[in-house]
Design a protein around this nucleic acid. Structure first.
Lengths: 126, 126
DNA sequence: CATAGTGTATGAACCATTTAATACACACAC
DNA sequence: GTGTGTGTATTAAATGGTTCATACACTATG
């Protein structure tokens, strides 16, 4: 549980993204219980309402569900879960392509840049 | 002169980016005169102070220079101009790689996604 | 029933951004 | 010189998304 906040994006969006990443790589299983709003807020040192806002949006997107007086759980809807990874990827690729489109860079140069930097990051993780 | 504002980022930053893109692709030549603060504000329907803020930052970055009582001009410092394109590219690639790193996607899958979407956008421009 | 833990709702506070209103100094054109 | 258009500076206000403080409703547990 370590979200690595940045200052650019709203906290509640970064929380949502954190959970989506965990779902995308399978670290959160279908039906698995996630921390309560207050517990999450404590761990991340944010306001409980911020946690609530993140969970509320996740619930609206069908990622989690809530039974009365129990901490929310990851949805068991495989269809929804399967989409998460692709949505994250598509979003990122979309933003990237949009931001470089106006620079008129040859596609091979672009792919090389991505390849090099992505591999460099692989090293850091190891 | 068409900036295509989005709602996410501050207007003054989007203006800066607009000029950087024009510089990167060579649509703004060294020494070329750019609109006055007031003129730009009029064209973009923003407050003159917002235009001023954008220009002020560009001046601090050495992208433009100002002689008394004349509209600012694109710098003639080739060194600075040459860096613009690479900086825009590096920024974009950095953000992209950072955002997909946590998803553990194989590099070839990633490159394919970029290739396909980038080419698709070529079509739209044509 | 009382306590403590859930999720939920509402209104205010906060803060960066943007806009606004003025003012000043300078130079060129007429 | 007068007027108009530059850049520049200062201060205040409005805007809007985010975050905070607080209260409420419900349920299991003992």
């Amino acid at each position: 549980m370590n979200v690595n906040f940045n200052n650019r994006d709203p906290v509640y969006l970064q929380i949502i993204r954190y959970f989506k990443e965990k779902i995308a790589v399978g670290e959160l299983a279908p039906g698995e219980e996630i921390p309560s709003r207050r517990e999450l807020a404590n761990k991340l040192k944010v306001n409980p309402n911020t946690a609530q806002r993140a969970y509320k949006e996740m619930e609206e997107q069908g990622l989690i569900y809530t039974e009365k007086n129990h901490p929310s759980k990851i949805t068991t809807d495989i269809k929804v879960l399967g989409k998460v990874r692709n949505e994250l990827l598509d979003e990122a690729v979309d933003m990237f392509v949009t931001s470089v489109r106006s620079i008129n860079v040859p596609v091979e140069e672009l792919l090389d840049l991505v390849r090099v930097k992505y591999s460099a990051n692989d090293d850091k993780e190891a």
